[in-house]
Simulated scan of single mutants.
Amino acid sequence: MKSQTEVQNLIRKNFKDLSKYEVKKIQDFKRNDFVCEANVKLADELGVNESFYRTDFDKNGFTDLLIIGDDFSCYGGMDESCSFRPIVLLNFGNEKYKIVNISQNFDDYYTPKIVSKNGQNLLEIYRTRIKDWENKITYKNPQKQILAYKFDDFIEYNSNNQNYIPIQKIEFSTSGCYGTCPVFDLEINQNQDAKFIAKQFNFNKELETWSDKNEGTFQTKIKDKDFNTLIKLLAYIDFPQLENNYSVNWTDDQTVELKIIYSSGKIKTISDYGASGSYGLKKVYKLLFDLRQNQNWKKIDEK
């Protein structure tokens, strides 16, 4: 890939949901939006002035791309696009590709930059910190996160790869939202026995009528590979050090509650409105949501 047009055509050809994706520099987002304008200034300061960059994030020997662009999934006033969506295109050879979304939230403006640390290619994510919205004043130093490609996604980089945190039990529950967010409770203990209480919207993606009756209670033993991935991910993100509460800045979303009993009775509880507390937590939530569909659940009688 040598040109912006070649990269854009590759994305549109291989990914139907990105058929309108426009590859362009951060400086080409000329919107009457304070956060957008601040992000352009930040990109200039960081020297991020290209529409795509080459590297190898997963160390498979093929060139991956960090791409800046607009997927036209959002429209504002005067039919102007309000979407900003940098992505990473992973290359597996033989024209096999994967798109990884690196935005933490859907209305996220930030500047991504490739860095190398300890022999690994990483992503630095910079976000402008707003000090005064009315007078359009920002803090001097932006927020910075460092992300590594681990567990098939980009999550916060941890230089300590020897983390081990003995986990005795995981409890996970979700609330409803303005829509059909899956509502369920999930429990997994250290011998991989699990209980899944499906309440609403777990088995049908179509709009359903709300009912007070649960969809069922199920049990299984979590598959070794899925259980080990979950435990290793929780250790890698160093979950005891995370905040206890997270919240997005919009309404009508879902709240998830994660409770982990570990190290002979210690308890970590995380409440996350919007389920976007961190990159690592978003990956944990995805794995837990996926367990509803990728395990051999057996329905049990409800007492």
Rank of each mutant, 00 (worst) to 15 (best):
K266Q: 14
N141Y: 12
D64R: 09
K268C: 06
S278V: 06
L233C: 04
F29V: 09
I102G: 05
F62E: 13
G176S: 15
T111Q: 01
Q219R: 14
Q143H: 08
T55C: 13
Y75Q: 03
D153T: 00
A38D: 12
Y279N: 02
Q254N: 03
I300P: 06
K117Y: 07
T220F: 10
E206P: 01
I125V: 15
Q4R: 08
E187W: 02
K199V: 08
N245V: 03
W250H: 11
I167R: 04
K59Q: 15
Q27I: 11
E95H: 10
R129K: 15
D108K: 03
G119Y: 07
I99R: 06
R31Q: 11
F218A: 03
T128D: 07
D28W: 04
W210M: 10
V7I: 15
I270Y: 05
K213S: 11
G179P: 12
Y164F: 14
E6Y: 03
Y157L: 02
R129H: 00
A148I: 02
E22G: 03
S211W: 04
S278M: 01
Q200S: 14
N204P: 04
L288F: 10
F196I: 01
F184G: 05
M78Q: 10
I130E: 13
D56I: 11
K140R: 04
K2W: 05
S73F: 04
S103G: 05
M1P: 01
T138K: 12
L89Y: 05
F203W: 14
I87W: 02
K286P: 00
Y75V: 13
T138C: 14
R31A: 10
W133C: 02
K303Y: 12
K20M: 05
E22C: 02
I67C: 10
W210A: 10
L123I: 06
F52R: 13
N32L: 09
Q190C: 12
Y262I: 01
I165A: 10
E6S: 04
S276E: 10
F196A: 07
N161F: 09
Y110D: 01
I260V: 15
L46I: 08
Q293W: 12
N189I: 15
E45D: 13
V7R: 00
